[in-house]
Nucleic acid binder design. Structure first.
Lengths: 237, 237
DNA sequence: TCCGGCATTATTGTTAACAATCATGTAAAC
DNA sequence: GTTTACATGATTGTTAACAATAATGCCGGA
């Protein structure tokens, strides 16, 4: 084989990039709100961004669409999804069904190493929030929920939570108040305390309240579409 | 436009078939246990079965893999998934988190028309079971859970339940006792009664017990792979 | 008779060219 | 001056040919 691979692009070091990786990267970008709702994802742009062929990108977009993180408009392209108010309700309802129980399960299984990992995560989360590093703060905040799901030891529910957390980030971007990035991390701290104490019932209750707080900070009467509703905006009446 | 479309094949009446349709059809076939775990899904076979191009099939298989209903072995092909015992545990854990709450939500929202629909569904389910129509019985049995999720009015959780019900069918095929098709429909009747009475708490409790019963009828120590584990079977010891 | 290497075949994976659709800008007509 | 029609460009969707990998059967040799 020739010593130099075909793509000497900026990012990719040596290997061909997996489409799962592309999906994860876009999930991450959505969580960090670097890809706001309604953003067009042109195939060409993604091709050069990831240094892969069009087919790989196409498959990644299909996977993202199956998770409802992107909308696929036929012959028009792929856009970051803009969940409606009704979908917001469904997402939070699902989270409130899953995550309190997940917290309980995780609290009953956690090893000391995992408790320590969660604590150190909270420190990082707090540090990012204090230093005003919005991107890190928002990513770590979402990752808290994902860590709990990981510790619950259930791959099925972990996948669900990843999807719900990502879509929640879209919701905050659309319906969230301007100043508030998202939930304050002190609630995460309380949950982690109950978690460390092995108090599953308390962790569940706190998680429930936490999710209610996040939802209550959304104004679901606000704008729905990502890239401005021109039709509705410039109406006669 | 010309009066006769290009494909005058057996099944498709007039339209080009959607890949979502293909996914649904395969889901259905898995639920009915017409596609047992480990079955190879060759692209060519699926192409002529559905009368579509290879790309469409490929996309459908990718979607099925993202739902963990098929396994995609690189350069080897697509196979109906063979969930492990650990995955079985995760699937039932997830179902027991979701479905009791779903039953409660549905009981609080059900319209008289929906109650009637559920009753008539139960009759069909019972009829199929009495007449020994195994394929219908098994499909209607799974559909009962899906109907409840539909009535709960939450698209996110509906999608989750569809996936879990389908994978449960795989589990029953792998680990289930020979004679028992799956759960008896009388438990469904009890749930529907509580549902019709608007007793959400009771419906949740019955659903929980129902799922425990299904799980208890599995022998998770039994064979795991679908198409026989030749390597393990013909061991020296 | 049994085993290993080789060739053939079949199936999957990728690439590239082609077709179709949509968006945009220009010009002509009223 | 406004609007409609058309042409151009860009982007998506599809098809088909090609490459690569794995499976299978065959043959030669011990």
């Amino acid at each position: 084989m020739p010593p130099a691979p075909k793509n000497m692009h900026i990012i990719d070091i040596a290997e061909e990039i997996d489409e799962e990786t592309i999906v994860d990267r876009i999930f991450e970008a959505v969580v960090e709100q670097r890809l706001p709702a309604g953003t067009k994802l042109s195939e060409q742009a993604l091709c050069e961004a990831f240094g892969v062929g069009r087919m790989r990108i196409r498959r990644a977009l299909l996977l993202l669409a199956s998770r409802e993180v992107v909308d696929l408009h036929p012959n028009k392209g792929a856009y970051i999804a803009s969940p409606t108010a009704e979908q917001a309700r469904e997402i939070f309802e699902a989270r409130m069904v899953l995550e309190p129980t997940i917290a309980t399960i995780a609290a009953g299984r956690a090893t000391p190493a995992e408790v320590a990992a969660l604590k150190s995560h909270l420190e990082a989360e707090s540090a990012a929030q204090i230093s005003g590093n919005r991107r890190d703060a928002i990513r770590l905040s979402g990752q808290f929920h994902i860590m709990l799901a990981q510790m619950a030891g259930n791959g099925v529910m972990l996948r669900m939570v990843k999807e719900l957390v990502t879509r929640t980030s879209l919701l905050i971007g659309i319906y969230g108040s301007a100043g508030v990035t998202n939930c304050r991390d002190d609630e995460h701290s309380l949950i982690a305390d109950a978690f460390a104490a092995g108090d599953g019932a308390k962790a569940a209750l706190l998680m429930q309240e936490h999710l209610e707080h996040i939802q209550s900070h959304l104004d679901l009467t606000a704008k729905s579409g990502g890239p401005v509703d021109l039709l509705q905006l410039f109406r006669k009446e």
